[in-house]
């Protein structure tokens, strides 16, 4: 008898320590998936390195043209050589990675915030509200993203990380809005939402304090995967010349030097490092994102 009681108490205690879909499940899934764990460690290290070192670097100095040291191969002075303006490629790579990461994170957070709010309202109210809001969303979906970004680049004279992020956000909030809306439509039929209504909570309060926590896991997963996509989009735009100007380096601007055949063939140190970095960064974010995605679905979990 006593033994039974002891066992019971023990199980109760172990149960107490875990919450149903908390960070512990995410963490367990990542630890179980070695690739995701390595990716996560790599991501943390590289962002710590990039943000740390760039504190001691002066962007003005690095992007200043130095005609006496054009196209130098890697040396002890210039670890990754110099470009056609005699600018240090290693310095540009650090600042560029920082800028690309910042843009990616900023765009993900801003588009996430807009998308979540939009999707929650549409899904929670449903019916006519949902119908009207989805038509507005459809309108944004059919706008030609690239063309409008090119026009913006022409209109806005001086680019900054903030203004560029805002332009990207304008076209990238729809995916998450749709996802949240479809989940909210399911969630609003559940009894706990109805119960909140009968207890006199306002609609806004129900959306933010009752519904949102129940959607948190898919939000985290979706935003992580979006981060990889957004870094890719920024690099793509900068590569095409519609992103940052040359005095604000990013991974994409460095990569665009490779459009010069001379650089492509003889000066690998300019474009190979950013190319590898983009590839590895996006793969790493994706690996972590996929592990998180599996963690939200009990049937796919490995941990």
């Amino acid at each position: 008898m006593e033994k039974n009681v002891a066992v019971l108490e023990e199980t109760e205690q172990t149960e107490e320590s875990k919450s149903p879909t908390g960070f512990s499940i995410f963490w367990r899934e990542i630890v179980r998936d070695k690739l995701a764990l390595i990716s996560l460690i790599f991501l943390v290290l590289i962002s710590a390195f990039v943000y740390g070192i760039s504190l001691f670097m002066n962007q003005e100095d690095i992007v200043t043209v130095d005609l006496f040291s054009i196209h130098q191969p890697p040396s002890s002075d210039f670890w990754l050589g110099t470009d056609y303006g005699g600018r240090d490629v290693f310095g540009q790579l650090i600042i560029g990675t920082r800028n690309s990461l910042s843009i990616g994170i900023l765009v993900t957070l801003m588009s996430g915030a807009i998308g979540i709010l939009f999707g929650l309202i549409a899904g929670y109210f449903g019916g006519t509200v949902d119908n009207i809001m989805m038509r507005i969303l459809d309108f944004f979906m059919v706008l030609p993203f690239l063309m409008i970004v090119i026009v913006f680049v022409a209109i806005v004279p001086k680019y900054s990380i903030i203004s560029f992020s805002l332009i990207m956000t304008l076209f990238l909030w729809m995916g998450i809005a749709r996802l949240i809306r479809s989940k909210a439509l399911q969630e609003r039929e559940l009894d706990y939402i109805q119960a909140s209504k009968t207890m006199g909570s306002s609609n806004f309060k129900i959306m933010m304090t009752q519904m949102l926590p129940n959607l948190s896991s898919i939000i985290i997963v979706n935003m992580t995967l979006n981060l990889a996509a957004n870094i890719g989009i920024e690099s793509g735009l900068s590569f095409l010349g519609f992103g940052f100007p040359e005095d604000t380096p990013s991974l994409g601007t460095l990569l665009s030097y490779a459009t010069n055949p001379q650089t492509l063939e003889f000066r690998w140190w300019i474009w190979v490092p950013p190319a590898i970095l983009i590839l590895v960064l996006m793969l790493a974010v994706r690996n972590v994102g996929e592990a998180l995605k599996r963690a939200t679905d009990a049937r796919q979990r490995r941990g």
Binding site: P20, T21, L190, D191, Y192, Q194, A195, S196, T198, M199, G200, Q210, P213, N214, S216
Partner: peptide
Amino acid sequence: FRKNVQMIFQDPYSSLNAKK
């Protein structure tokens, strides 16, 4: 009125918010 009339729901699983 909301204060004076309350409801007990059928399903004790979905009527409590699992995250709270």
